[in-house]
Structures are given as C-alpha cells and as structure tokens.
Amino acid sequence: MKLTGIALLFLMIIGRCSSTTVSSEERTLGDPLTIRTGTSFGMCVGYCVKDYVLKVTAVDLTMLSRSKTQTSPKSCQKTIDQTSWDSLKTLADLDAFSKQPERLGCPDCADGGAEYIELQRGDQKHRVTFEYGQTIPGFESLVDALRSQRKAFDECP
C-alpha cells in the first residue's frame, strides 16, 4: 500500500514537471527573435524617422525629428497579441533573409523615403533597407505584416 502511494506521488510529480504551459515571462526570456522595422524621410517636417522594435508581444516606437525646432524624440510602447507575434515569427526566416542585399533600390532618393526591416536572433542579425512603398522579393508577406503593425501604431501620444 505504501509502495503504491509513493509510486502515485512520484508519477504526479513527474507529470507536473512535464507540463507544457509556459508563462508569458518565460516566453519573453526564451524567445530570442527581435524584429526592427521603420521608415525615414530626408526632407520632411515633424517626426521624419519612426523606428519600431517588436519582441514577443511588445512593440516599442521611437519617433525622431530632423528639425532644429522639434528635437526631442518621442517613445512609447504597446502590446500585440500572441497570435500576431507568432505569425510574424513564422514569416521571419532569418537564414533566408540574410541572403538579401543590405540595400535594395535607391532608398530615400529624391525624398521618396526609405523603409527597413532587421531581424535578429542572438548574435545573428541582418538589415535590409529599401525604397518606401516597395518590397523585399520573397518577403512580401513579412513586409505587409510589418506595415500593418506600423499603421496600427503610427504615433506616440
């Protein structure tokens, strides 16, 4: 009887340790992917540079001005749902993305603007800068998904 009780207790402990439930804090620490994206315009008034950093379910936006009268940057943060983050992670194939050139076209030539996407996992990172409104061949879905995220979070209060 004692042996059966000990065996059941042991099985319960082992079953508890193999639980697949992961807290959001554990997910944040265990997910090394960082996605950076943004836009910039050389000749503009106001906040001409917008940089976004996406990591797990947090999005940080930093807005910078090139104007001498409006020099203080603005920063703010919002959250995105886990499903959106998982979708972005699926589209963010760093190995394939690293094969892209660092510059596509002529970003911000004739004040047309520039966009960039940077993927980082641990020490490996790659950034591609391209013409505003254009795309990265083979990564159209990632570009569109990140544009949607930027559009949904376009300004700091």
Score class of each variant (00 low, 15 high):
Leu54Lys: 09
Met12Ile: 12
Glu155Gly: 00
Gly38Cys: 00
Lys89Gly: 03
Phe10Arg: 07
Asp60Ala: 14
Ala92Val: 01
Ser19Gln: 07
Asp81His: 06
Asp93Glu: 07
Leu11Gln: 08
Ser84Ala: 10
Gly46Ala: 04
Ser84Cys: 04
Gly112Lys: 07
Ser75Thr: 10
Ile117Gln: 04
Glu102Trp: 02
Asp86His: 02
Cys76Leu: 05
Met63Glu: 15
Asp95Val: 11
Gln149Ile: 08
Arg150Trp: 05
Leu9Cys: 15
Arg16Ile: 08
Leu54Ala: 13
Thr71Asp: 14
Met63Asn: 06
Arg103Leu: 12
Lys50Val: 00
Leu142Pro: 04
Ala152Lys: 10
Arg103Met: 13
Lys50Thr: 01
Thr28Gln: 12
Gly122Thr: 02
Ile117Asp: 04
Gln70Arg: 14
Thr57Gly: 13
Asp93Met: 02
Asp108Asn: 13
Glu26Ile: 12
Asp51Gly: 10
Val49Cys: 07
Pro137Asn: 03
Asp108Ala: 07
Gln134Met: 08
Leu64Val: 12
Arg121Gly: 03
Thr90Val: 04
Asp60His: 14
Gln124Val: 11
Ser98Leu: 06
Ile117Met: 04
Glu26Asp: 15
Thr135Cys: 03
Val22Phe: 05
Pro157Ile: 03
Tyr132Ser: 06
Leu142Arg: 00
Ala114Gly: 06
Gly122Asn: 05
Met63Trp: 05
Cys76Val: 05
Phe41Asp: 02
Lys78Arg: 10
Val22Leu: 11
Ile35Thr: 02
Gly105Ser: 10
Gly113Gln: 05
Gln82Arg: 08
Lys2Met: 09
Thr71Arg: 15
Ile80Gln: 01
Cys76Asp: 08
Asp111Pro: 06
Glu115Phe: 08
Glu140Gln: 15
Lys99Asn: 12
Asp123Cys: 01
Leu64Tyr: 14
Ser84Asn: 06
Ser23Leu: 05
Ser18Tyr: 10
Met63Thr: 10
Ala114Leu: 07
Thr90Trp: 04
Asp154Lys: 12
Leu146Asn: 06
Ala114Tyr: 00
Asp81Met: 03
Lys78Thr: 14
Asp31Ala: 13
Val49Trp: 10
Ala152Met: 06
